[in-house]
Amino acid sequence: MSDDWLTGPILEQLSSGVLVVDEEFQLVYLNTFLQRHSSVQLTEAKGKSLFKVFADLPEAWLRRKFASVLELQSPSFSSWEQRQYVIKLPHLRPVTSSSQYMAQNCTMLPLNDPSGRRHVCMLIEDATDAFVYQQHLQTTLQKLEQSNRVDGLTQALNRRYWEEQLKLEVQRAQRYQQPLSLLLFDLDKFKQLNDQYGHLGGDCVLIELTARVRGLLRDTDWFGRYGGEEFGIVLTNTALAGAMEVAERICLAVSSKAVTFNEHSIQSSISVGVAQLDAAGERAHEVLIGQADMALYNAKREGRNRVVSYSAGETEFQLKTN
């Protein structure tokens, strides 16, 4: 018994595209799904070159695919993950998808007609759902990666990521023999500020101060939250003199203007320690942090709200006290 009564209607109702071409790549068949999506009528397109009917096909690529199917009599495949679509078709999810066109998985099969003439049958599956999920996943992963790098409160880099970058920049500076400087700064009398205005007040100052500092930095500088109220800035390709200038500007930007919190005007300041990389070797970044920290300590000792650079003599002092 013939199964024509089954195959015909099913082919027409299928939610996948079915397309058949002969050895000359002339269109032999298009099912309803493809006709509707592409607004091409089989009656008009039949016998015409596939590449004329669908003008924006990737012709060279598709010819090679079809040739392999015909020559090897083996199937060939195309995945949306590598090529989003073969035929540009609109999809039926205009609102939910960021892409304009239907993502497609295609299977190209060898097919012989009753007289033995060779054809290629291309099955086109709509993979837009998978494509959309994949895009969501990627965006989520990107956000996740971002949040793994950033301090939630201040949006400065977190300590782990900032230190990684410091280490890499130190290595780079050593390799290319470029100057590199480090600023470490600390919000003055942070404890007192918290006691007076509460932790929310303290947080507010930290957020405002971070925003002001960020506005003074270059894209190539790395700004991170080192501890509670302590921050670090890696200044790439910058020698001590330049770093001092940046530090002075930052210092002024904080002290020159009060932060408004719940109708209070909070006056704050920072102390900054500055050091330029001069150590060699694998632990150079640790030495650099130690030097900037030493300068910061001196800035605090000398009365706060000021910038102090590290000078070599202090190493001995540090060695003695340790």
Binding site: P58, W61, S68, L72, S74, P75, S76, F77, S78, S79, E81, Q82, R83
Partner: peptide, 19 residues
């Protein structure tokens, strides 16, 4: 430029496997 490395790999694999 128009075919990714992955696409080439799946093509070669598919041809090898299916033939």
């Amino acid at each position: 430029d128009n075919a990714s490395e992955l696409e080439m790999l799946t093509d070669i694999s598919s041809i090898l496997t299916t033939t």
